[in-house]
Computed example of a mutant assay.
Amino acid sequence: MRRREFLLGAAAVCALPGPGLAAAYPDRPVRVVVAFAAGGGTDLIGRTVAQRLQAVLGQPFVVENRGGAGGNIGTDLIAKAPADGYSLLLGYSSNFVISPFLYDDLAYKPLKDFAPISLVATATNILAAHPSLPASNLKELQAYAKANPRKAYFGTAGVGTLGHLTGELFGSVAGVEIVHAPYKGNSAALTDLLAGRVQLFAGSPAVVMEFVRNGRLKALAVASPQREPGMPEIPTFIEQGFAVEALAWFGLLAPAGTPAGVIDTLNKAVVTALDDKEVKESFAKLGYEVTTSTPAVFADFIRTDYDRWQKVIKAAGIKAE
């Protein structure tokens, strides 16, 4: 069963109003903070969610872009907002499960300061290779890296990115040393990968799939629990015997202490709003899959991701640059 189907099935539990449901909610406009600048993929996802919630609940859901510090500023804004359901966050995975271990002075506590409402979307990571690397699957890469320690370099969009952590986790699980080569963005990493100056890339499939399909690169694995429908020919890390799972995600959250009835209303609305072919297609163009959940499933999802990346970051000694 694919992750979206599992989580959507779990979301059905929230289909009926729960105890303490605030029947009048919402009775005025709701602010939805997107912790990144306007115009990017995150902003598009946030505005799509806001528009669809407005259609379902009948009140304006107004996006407010509050970028800065890689999303940490806008995230903190909602951590400290009134817990009344009128200030929400389109949360991004990095700010909840990676930033806490990169920054010593993070102003919010991701597991305590928020009330999860629902997942919104997820995207996998990919490990791709230059054709000159004598490995076409992970077992062969493991063998090569063991015979040639610290000679295989994996490029990423930067220190502390999900691609960086994916590569580090694979190295740890496989018992090999592959060297991180951080770049200032995906474009520079891709340029050096295509030129063979680095042998591997870990990050978003959207960066490399054009070149995988035309034979200039080869895909070794995706880091989702199951194969991806848009690239079913690429095996997962897990099916090749390596316990590596790395999903980027967006989710809707409220400040901790928001009434349970409000959370239930919003959860039901999110599930309804995103069960739409047009929404799914627009997210797919950004490399994301619509993925909804119950509040409890989302909370467990965050905790699992939090624990996973805490171990990887501490073991690798990663700190923000």
Rank of each mutant, 00 (worst) to 15 (best):
L200E: 04
L200M: 02
L200Q: 04
F201N: 00
F201C: 01
F201Q: 00
F201V: 00
F201W: 05
F201Y: 15
F201R: 00
A202C: 15
G203S: 11
G203I: 02
G203C: 07
S204R: 05
S204I: 00
P205D: 03
P205Q: 01
P205T: 01
P205A: 04
V207K: 07
V208H: 00
V208F: 04
M209E: 04
M209K: 10
E210S: 14
E210K: 15
E210D: 14
F211S: 06
F211N: 12
F211Q: 12
V212Q: 09
R213S: 10
R213L: 13
G215H: 11
G215V: 14
G215A: 12
L217W: 13
L217R: 08
K218F: 13
K218G: 05
A219V: 12
L220W: 08
L220P: 11
A221W: 02
V222G: 02
V222P: 04
A223C: 09
A223P: 03
S224C: 08
Q226N: 09
R227E: 08
R227W: 12
R227A: 10
E228H: 15
E228I: 13
G230Y: 15
M231D: 07
M231E: 06
P232N: 13
P232H: 08
E233M: 07
E233D: 15
E233Q: 15
I234S: 06
P235N: 10
T236Q: 07
T236S: 12
F237A: 04
F237R: 00
F237T: 00
I238S: 08
I238D: 03
E239P: 12
Q240T: 10
Q240Y: 12
G241N: 08
G241F: 13
F242N: 03
F242D: 03
F242I: 09
A243M: 09
A243T: 06
A243E: 13
V244H: 07
A246H: 14
A246S: 15
A248C: 13
A248R: 06
W249K: 03
G251L: 03
G251I: 05
G251Y: 01
L253K: 13
L253D: 03
L253A: 13
A254D: 13
A254Q: 14
A254E: 14
P255F: 03
A256T: 11
A256L: 03
G257L: 13
T258G: 02
T258P: 04
T258A: 14
P259T: 07
A260F: 01
A260H: 08
G261F: 13
G261C: 10
V262R: 10
V262I: 15
V262E: 05
I263V: 15
I263M: 04
I263H: 12
D264T: 03
D264H: 08
D264C: 05
T265F: 00
T265C: 09
T265M: 01
T265S: 14
N267A: 03
N267K: 00
N267H: 02
K268L: 08
K268A: 14
K268D: 01
A269K: 02
A269Y: 10
A269E: 03
V270T: 11
V270W: 09
V271C: 13
V271D: 00
T272M: 09
T272N: 10
